[in-house]
């Protein structure tokens, strides 16, 4: 009995030791040299593996940082300038600062403004619906509301508002990784410069139809009239394909374009109510849902 135990212990120990020795030599033989800075850089990154930087994950991004040894076209939108500063310190090079950005959904086509013209009965993903046709409304540029962007978001920062059926971004959680921008087949989501106090002014429409058709499909569509373009003193607004666009890098939040827009396609978010009450009641009514949604 006891001999059996001894034999077993001896045999197993021998096998164990032998295997350990072999493993040690194999590990030595096939060792791959890796720059230790990659590990350091990776630790200073947020570790979200969201792909917002354009690389397959934080590790790949760290490798790219070390390999290129300059940060001009490398930026981690999640970590922001602080994180990139740390990375630069580890590598001993200059950090390139970028303005923080936030995702913005450019459509206000709720049932109220944009009446439904048909009913979709297929797989409810935006990608499939938009490959079939223009959508459940007369506007072929607007939001489907099936939430491909919600599914794409790793940070729980975008949700469909059950009342409007349009996704809304939670500014605090949004890291501007751009996953939703890629997921949206209608190209509605844009990464815009982040202003203090969550303030935003943007054209909340992507309709490239001529005014009449656009207006017929949706009462708050941009009709490309050009009033805002004339009003803007900073050359921030351009009109292309019957559609206005405000460049957030040039915009100074003067709010002049908001008041001239005849369809309320341009909306302001995060501003205190205006003191001089010159708005017609229709205008303020149209502005409420988008503003209210972002202010909670």
């Amino acid at each position: 009995m006891s001999t059996t135990i001894i034999y077993t212990v001896v045999t197993l120990s021998t096998i164990g030791t032998l295997a350990a020795v072999i493993l040690y030599f194999v590990a030595q033989k096939f060792k791959v040299y890796e720059d230790p800075r990659i590990d350091d850089v990776e630790t200073s990154l947020p570790g979200a593996n969201c792909g917002g930087c354009g690389y397959a994950g934080c590790r790949a991004f760290a490798e790219a940082c070390v390999k290129q040894n300059e940060l001009s076209n490398l930026f981690c939108p999640v970590g922001g300038n602080d994180c990139m500063g740390d990375v630069a310190k580890i590598l001993g090079i200059e950090a390139v600062k970028q303005d923080p950005r936030v995702a913005v959904v450019r459509c206000q086509g709720s049932c109220e403004y944009r009446p439904r013209t048909n009913k979709f009965d297929g797989v409810t993903t935006c990608a499939i619906a938009s490959s079939v046709y223009g959508g459940e409304t007369g506007c072929q540029f607007g939001c489907h509301g099936y939430g491909d962007c919600v599914a794409a978001c790793d940070f729980d920062a975008i949700h469909i508002n059950p009342e409007t059926g349009i996704p809304e971004v939670v500014d605090e959680k949004c890291v501007a990784c751009g996953a939703c921008v890629k997921a949206c087949p209608k190209n509605l989501i844009e990464l815009r410069k982040k202003f203090p106090k969550k303030r935003k002014i943007y054209v909340s429409c992507r309709n490239e139809e001529k005014g009449g058709i656009a207006r017929k499909a949706c009462s708050v569509a941009c009709i490309g009239c050009g009033k805002c373009e004339k009003e803007c003193k900073f050359d921030a607004i351009t009109i292309a394909n019957n559609l206005a666009f405000i460049d957030s890098d040039k915009c100074r939040l003067c709010r002049k374009c908001v008041s001239v827009c005849p369809t309320n396609a341009i909306i302001e978010v995060g501003f205190p109510p205006r003191k001089i009450k010159q708005e017609t009641s229709e205008e303020s009514k149209a502005k409420t849902p988008a503003t209210a949604g972002n202010e909670k």
């Binding site: 009913k119 979709f120 009965d121 297929g122 079939v132 459940e136």
Partner: peptide, 10 residues
């Protein structure tokens, strides 16, 4: 809503 035409992929 019910009298809207239905659209689905083939």
């Amino acid at each position: 809503m019910s009298n809207l035409l239905i659209v689905s992929p083939s």
